[in-house]
Amino acid sequence: MISLEGIHKHYTSDSRRLHVLKGVNLSIDDGEMVSIMGSSGSGKSTLLNILGLLDTYDHGAYQLGDTVISAGLSEAKAAQLRNRFIGFVFQSFNLLPFKSALENVALPLYYQKIGRKARNYRAEKLLDMVGLGERTKNMPNELSGGQKQRVAIARALITDPRMILADEPTGALDSATTDDVMTVFKEVHRTGKTIVIVTHEHDIAEQTERLILLKDGQVERE
């Protein structure tokens, strides 16, 4: 289970102090597929960054499974936890342009010091699962948007994480490919993975089990 209690986050920009998250309370069960919605400036990206250990919070409590995530988590420790527990899917895919689909998928395992053979074997299996078994050697610029996002999903899955965090995963895709990608997410969900999707599209949110609506730095409705 993932739980956030009274999470606060401030940002300082141009000597102005912004109170972005104002006491967010949230809990997500293992194996749940939820979506987070909110208008621009509602704090949903900040929440996703904190959930994904890409950013720290100021006050409150965050528990990721059995692990207590402290407010002042070090970058080194965060990197380790991210690698073990969290898989990311981004709107702009964030594939490394000079690596093939296979190498992109295998990359997180490199940081777990897993050998090339084992990495590639697992990456091939996952690319097969997302329907790109024939495209392993393609470079990102040889893939369509939907295919890139499926590579990104395979990459998010390769460390067998506790949770997949997706930030506007269909934001850059047309509606046909959006359906493709959502199908993949649902398939992944059926294998028992927790999936959190940040989106501003109602169609997407409706395909998840639960919608968390964020407004002005607080959870308005679940």
Partner: peptide
């Protein structure tokens, strides 16, 4: 910068 950011998001330790 972007590449390094992605690598870090994927779990690269600062030491790595």
């Amino acid at each position: 910068t972007r590449e390094i950011g992605i690598r870090k998001a994927l779990g690269a330790h600062p030491r790595q």
